[in-house]
Design a protein around this nucleic acid. Sequence first.
DNA 1: ATTGACCTGTGTGCAGCTCACAGGTTTAGA
DNA 2: TCTAAACCTGTGAGCTGCACACAGGTCAAT
Lengths: 142, 142
Amino acid sequence: MRVRQLAEKLGVSADTVRYYTRIGLLAPTKSTANGYKFYNIREQSCLRFILSARDLGFSVEDITQIIAKADDGQSACPTVRRLIDKRLHETQQRYLDMLRLRKRMLAAVDSWDSKEDKAPTGNQICYLIEEFIEVEVGSETK
Amino acid sequence: MRVRQLAEKLGVSADTVRYYTRIGLLAPTKSTANGYKFYNIREQSCLRFILSARDLGFSVEDITQIIAKADDGQSACPTVRRLIDKRLHETQQRYLDMLRLRKRMLAAVDSWDSKEDKAPTGNQICYLIEEFIEVEVGSETK
DNA sequence: ATTGACCTGTGTGCAGCTCACAGGTTTAGA
DNA sequence: TCTAAACCTGTGAGCTGCACACAGGTCAAT
């Protein structure tokens, strides 16, 4: 199997497969004379694992560690449990960040609805933004 | 004012100020003989605007456009309204992505609680991940 | 033999900073 | 006056997780 074929089989881009190969997560045989890389069934299941882990929020670095453990013959489970804890906290945090940002953006759009456009002055670049923030800061709705 | 002083005044890192300067959002005077950059009150209020816009979800590229409009003497408001619409959609999407990821991660952690650690086999790298995904795919809780 | 369509690996780019580093500046002390 | 240490500076590179550009290789049809 060459890069394209493997990529399509698992529904990712060839560039993604190349990337995982480049950083050493996939180790295809150096192929024939033309330098093309050749992926076998072993690489395919490795890629499938990578994608599964990715969908669970593990970073590429995490996945590297997990695979390294397994390649070493040890159980990767403790590592997996430890890492997902960390990533879960981060995801929770980002989720909250997005929630708050979304709320703030909605509030801005809403308040701007009743305001007209204005030209910039020497002191202001865009009064919509500058005045909205001032109001926001005051009412700290944490 | 030099970079550090301005940074501390507005509560960001000196590196952040340097970054905005590097990409042309801030244009300090080239300073004295030693090459140090000098920020005046005008730059300070510009940085304050940048941070306000950033907190509303505008990208650095957005902010560049907004400031360019204002520098050109035109009202940046129409641009601002158009851009925040785009960013709001993206934020909404990312919020949903985080929500779904969080849910999946919680489900994984929960189901792994009652499972033991296992060593890798020739076919599996970490059965926790591989088996969880299989179950998940089946029950497509969209 | 030649054209054209498709494929390959490698190098670079992206956002939004953060860090490393070599050197300049300032200040305390002797 | 000299010096040594603490602090500050600008510039260059690095980070994540790919996507894109590009020069060249391959292969089927002419």
